Amino acid sequence: MGIRANFENNLQELKSKITEMGELSVVALERSFTALKAQDVELALKVIEGDTAIDNLEIEINQFSIWIMAKEAPVSRDLREIIGVLKISSEIERVGDFAVNIAKSTIKIGNTISLLDITDLEKMKNISIEMLRKAIQSFLEENILLAKEVGNLEDDVDQYSAETYKKLTTYLSEHPEETNQLVQLLFVNRFLERTADHITNVAESTAFLIKGQIYDFNS
């Protein structure tokens, strides 16, 4: 096998691990929100336990990337691809962390009448998952248009986040007895807003890989 073919095979393995990380993070977000809606503490605990698999994949990607750089001594675009993989894996790991944070908020809320319906949190979660899938697809296909779509979707998350913050703080002023749950839902609102930020960073890293210039989809 030639040197170039060997490098491409190694890079493909890295991309496969990125895809797996992304899929695990999507599952974590879905399950954490399902736990929040159902106030299912047992499911929330499973989300927290499952984060180890995402963390382990990030470690594997980091170690494999370093090994490739040491063995292959890549330059120019090849180096950009490996650096892109490292940055993207770090961002996806943070998405998994936010799913864990949502699960922890679920545990803190406990068993009470849910106030989730007064928020736009589920819409934010759904958009974030769409963003993550598009961001990873953009990376795998090197599709700059998909990367830009991710940036556009983040604006929707930001808008829902602002509206949810207003709804929750207004409700809190009228129902101080619900402080515990409302504060946790405010945290979840922040977690989902930050999730979208990190997914946008994945899209920006992809855009840099494709075009070789820095993009800011948050502006």
Rank of each mutant, 00 (worst) to 15 (best):
I129G: 04
E122F: 04
L43V: 01
Q159Y: 14
I129C: 06
V157W: 03
T19N: 13
L146N: 09
V47W: 02
E58C: 07
K17C: 09
T195C: 04
Q39F: 09
S161R: 14
S32M: 08
F7M: 05
A38C: 12
S105P: 10
I61G: 01
D40E: 01
K123V: 13
I88C: 00
G22P: 03
Y165K: 12
V85W: 00
I102W: 05
V202S: 00
K71E: 11
G212T: 00
E130N: 15
R94Y: 03
L132F: 01
S90V: 03
E204N: 00
E81P: 05
L29W: 01
A28I: 05
K87F: 07
K166Y: 12
S161V: 11
K166S: 14
A35H: 02
E177Q: 11
I83V: 12
K148A: 13
V47A: 02
D117S: 13
E154T: 07
V100H: 07
D120T: 14
L116V: 06
V26I: 15
S16L: 14
S173P: 08
A73Y: 11
Y160P: 03
G2E: 10
G96R: 06
T106A: 08
E163K: 14
D120A: 14
E81N: 12
D120I: 09
I136P: 03
S219V: 15
D117R: 07
L146Q: 10
L145G: 12
I136Q: 01
F191D: 05
E193F: 00
A203V: 01
Q184F: 07
I18Q: 02
K87L: 10
V95K: 01
E72H: 12
V150K: 00
V27N: 15
D40R: 01
A38H: 13
V202L: 07
L209M: 01
E8V: 11
L209V: 00
A5T: 14
D51G: 09
I82A: 03
A5Q: 15
L209C: 00
A103R: 02
I107L: 01
L186T: 12
D97I: 05
I83A: 07
E8A: 08
V183L: 11
D40I: 04
L185D: 04
A147S: 12
N62R: 09
S89T: 08
N10Q: 15
L186I: 12
G2R: 05
R4W: 08
L24W: 05
V47C: 04
V95H: 01
L172W: 04
E23Q: 14
V75Q: 05
S76C: 14
I18R: 03
R80K: 06
F98C: 09
A99E: 04
Q39C: 08
L182K: 03
E49W: 09
L24Y: 08
A203M: 00
Q137W: 10
H175V: 10
D197A: 08
M1D: 13
E174W: 02
V41K: 13
E93D: 10
N101L: 08
L11T: 10
I127V: 13
R80I: 01
E72L: 07
E142H: 00
T52W: 13
A53K: 15
D158H: 09
M124E: 10
